[in-house]
């Protein structure tokens, strides 16, 4: 992508650059007026984007089909509007019906969905020995099998972790810590990756590096 030349694009680029500095004035300096202004600007424009998307999408998936003869779409439209009774204390109970539809569909799909990929597949994968005979494959298989059993036992919250459960649960906590350590390492990658992108943008707008 080349550095823009159209005046509105250049203005946009510098606007974005200034807004970025305003936001970073908070961590790099302290909370101040320009940071709060930029923060409120973001909330405003994000809400506007959400609202515009809501209007266009509801029109596309509900209103237009209804106008074209699928009259029953009036039901979800009314139920959707009923959600807004949440804002009126006396009629708040009406909003429970659309919530019931969302919760019923959500739980029904979620519960039936987790059975195979999250439970069955994971158990099968844990206890399936490696096809090859390499020593490292067997080590990894035993590590994962023992680790998973011990870590799951750590979540046996209805029993006190004493007696026979004492050592497996303690070992399980170590396996969980290793997992969380790797997760933390990946979190560092994610956050610093995003920040690197901003540092790059900072230099690009100043034309110190090419865009």
């Amino acid at each position: 992508m080349a550095y823009p030349t159209a005046p509105l694009e250049v203005l946009g680029l510098w606007t974005g650059w200034l807004l970025m500095l305003m936001i970073y004035s908070y961590p790099l300096y302290k909370e101040n007026i320009v940071f709060r202004w930029a923060e409120h600007t973001y909330i405003a424009v994000m809400l506007a984007v959400n609202l515009v998307m809501m209007v266009t999408n509801v029109n596309r998936i509900a209103i237009q089909p209804m106008l074209q003869g699928q009259i029953h779409y009036i039901i979800p439209i009314i139920l959707g509007l009923a959600m807004y009774t949440l804002l009126v204390a006396d009629y708040r109970w009406i909003s429970r019906y659309p919530i019931a539809v969302l919760v019923g569909a959500g739980f029904g799909l979620g519960m039936r969905g987790v059975l195979i990929p999250n439970l069955l597949d994971q158990v099968v994968s844990t206890i399936t020995p490696p096809a090859g005979g390499a020593a490292m494959d067997w080590f990894n298989f035993i590590y994962i099998a023992i680790g998973t059993i011990c870590a799951v036992s750590y979540f046996l919250l209805t029993y006190e972790h004493t007696g026979a459960l004492r050592y497996p649960t303690r070992l399980g906590r170590w396996f969980i810590m290793i997992g969380l350590g790797a997760y933390f390492g990946n979190t560092v990658l994610f956050r610093l990756s995003m920040l690197s992108g901003r540092a790059q943008f900072f230099l690009q707008v100043l034309k110190i590096i090419p865009m």
Partner: peptide, 16 residues
Amino acid sequence: IAMLASSYMPFYKSGL
């Protein structure tokens, strides 16, 4: 994102 590479690793290992 990187954290999902951790969360989804068991799905990758189980072949999903």
